[in-house]
Amino acid sequence: MASNWFRFAAPASFYPLAGRLIPVFWILTGVCLLVGLYWGFFQTPDQLGGSNAQKEYYRIIFIHVPAAWMSMWLYVVMVCWAAIGLVFNTRLSFMMANAVAPTGAIFTFLALWTGAFWGRPSWGTYWDWDPRLTTELILFFMYIGYIALHSAIDDTRRADRAAALLAIVGLVMVPLIFWSVNCPDPNQCAALHQRSNLTQIEGNILFSMLAVTFGFWMYSFATTLMRLRSIILTREADNTWVQELLVKGGRA
């Protein structure tokens, strides 16, 4: 059983597996997003909140919150792959971390963008130095830093390891940064964002939020695997199995 798992740690055997999985993930993405967005737009209340009611525009939540969740989750995923790569010196893990980064950056950007559109009607401004918003921006810088460092180093080996170390340092620092912007005055703390508590959310809203999150997750799988396949091809271009693949592809 164990040998089966290690078989897929080799890029050559993972490549075709990824190819078979990608359509599955795309279908799941489509289904989840359709269900989630339909439910979010038509099966949820028009008003939200008690004392400071949020009107129709609150429906941005169905994109905003899942995107923010995914942006943080993908960073953790990226750091995990990077750490596995550093410890076990496995090529595929580094490639995985590499493939996750752009998707993570896109979700971070999406969360910031939708946040600005939500902020305009509800806070009266596109941007505010709210702790979570600021931290999301920092997270975006982290992704950009990872990608920039990786692309600045020509030697793939060094690029992989250096970027991995940076990602790990970033993971340590992000909570600290969040804490410092959340609580700039250690004598007292305040924040614009409402405290979130999943149990207080209305069932329909929670359902569609989770459905979209799941859809985003499947989307991450699909895009990451697609990117991973192209990374594998570029890096293993000199290997015989890629050459054989090219010959086969040319004939078909």
Binding site: I138, G145, A148, L149, V169, I177, S180, P186
Partner: peptide, 17 residues
């Protein structure tokens, strides 16, 4: 330039306090 991109965000806690 790259160094500043990587490091400046990490300086935030020190800057804030």
């Amino acid at each position: 330039i790259l160094l500043s991109l990587l490091i400046l965000p990490l300086y935030i806690p020190v800057l804030v306090y």
